[in-house]
Write a protein that binds this DNA or RNA. Structure first.
Lengths: 225, 225
DNA sequence: CGGCCACTTGAAAACCTTCAACCTATGTGG
DNA sequence: CCACATAGGTTGAAGGTTTTCAAGTGGCCG
């Protein structure tokens, strides 16, 4: 059954076809792919180790048909980290539409096959409601996101990353420079997976290294400016 | 400006209004909220410490207008962990639609105000394309996922959580019991923030504790069944 | 003023990483 | 078919970081 399915899938590679005609459709879209047709283009099969997308490339959305993809990000310091796994039925590259570019590199961990989805042009509105709804549900259900950029880093860096992320978002939401943390050290620790005491010491180090100024819950960035 | 905005917002609390009429609309929906109207209902203001949603409740989607919410999950062992923060313009509760129930408890970290969004009924299709598209973009951009359930846990538990999550997804995608990990120990370590050697030793411990059987890249669950 | 809670600081213990060596499987060329 | 090369995997010991435990400080509110 598995091999049969695979060969039938390979048969339509390269053409854009209705997902309803695909034997693996249930895995991708669930049981009732009724009302509105979803069209996808089967891409050429990926050998183990082949790259589907490269970090920084232009947005594109895929759904895994068979195999398994590993998602990696390259950090500014040159190191790489695995940030996710995608199995059949899961989405690859959705984040790229929000960012304007691919957030990670996707590489086949085993021989894999994927289909490319065409996302309706932004602002087109109206049509494709069902597709969008399904994508939304899928993305909200996707077990782990291009995830914790800080796991495994030393505690000081985790806290620094948290503060940076927080201040960026706080600015976006219209707050001004001396930011006030709404969380206790215990909450920050719970979020980062650190003991409260460790958060205190980390903030102390960052303060001493002039990377920021902390007094109580008030933080001010004093970056390498 | 801030206080003016807040008072105007409070004025419409309880009624479902067009977001375009809201002075804070740009923060929630960006610059051009043109084509299609989005309607939201302003909820009564939340005092510091008040709960907006409770883990396990029925699905509901909110967008933060002012203040800040903390997201927490209660783990089976009774402990709690912070899994996210939501600032103005960010979404709360989207995951609930995929899961059928709220994934976390949301509590006001500071006095806050939120609007409730009405998500088009599943399967309604057609209309609301713009709303869905915006939600999709927002959710894909949402900085941290509502889960890195393993951060801060001992290495053994992190690896166990990874294997469990992987096998669940592998089953969903149609794989059978002796699962084959597509990743090297180094990749698993990179994903979990652990050294490869630590992954090896953790797998050893899990194996010895009968929690699973590992041989090379083949794992079989041997849970507390 | 007293109590509570968050925050801070110090020292010992536990844990994880690093380093270095060795082992095993797989695949290639002879 | 074997020899070798390579990549992944495993194991042990030393060293560094983080957690834990314990005690003490500071602010806020009844």
């Amino acid at each position: 059954m598995h091999t049969l399915e695979r060969s039938r899938l390979r048969g339509v590679s390269g053409t854009e076809t209705d997902c309803a005609a695909c034997p693996g459709s249930r895995r991708c879209w669930g049981d009732n792919l009724a009302a509105e047709a979803v069209y996808a283009r089967r891409e050429p099969p990926l050998e183990r180790g082949a790259r589907l997308i490269e970090q920084g490339q232009q947005p594109a959305l895929y759904i895994v048909a068979t195999g398994c993809l590993v998602l990696r990000v390259s950090l500014p310091d040159g190191s790489q980290r695995v940030v996710g796994l995608r199995l059949p039925g899961e989405l690859v590259g959705l984040e790229s539409y929000a960012r304007g570019e691919q957030a990670y590199t996707a590489q086949a961990a085993t021989a894999s096959a994927v289909c490319r989805l065409r996302l309706p042009a932004p602002g087109a509105g109206g049509a494709h409601g069902a597709l969008l709804e399904r994508l939304l549900m899928k993305s909200a259900a996707q077990p782990e996101r291009a995830s914790a950029p800080w796991a495994g880093l030393p505690a000081v860096e985790r806290v620094a990353a948290f503060i940076e992320n927080y201040t960026q978002r706080a600015q976006l939401s219209g707050r001004e420079d001396p930011f006030k943390l709404p969380l206790t050290r215990a909450d920050i620790g719970s979020y980062l997976g650190l003991a409260p005491e460790t958060v205190v010491r980390a903030l102390g180090h960052l303060s001493q290294a002039q990377r920021l100024a902390v007094r109580g819950r008030t933080v001010r960035l004093g970056g390498p400016a």
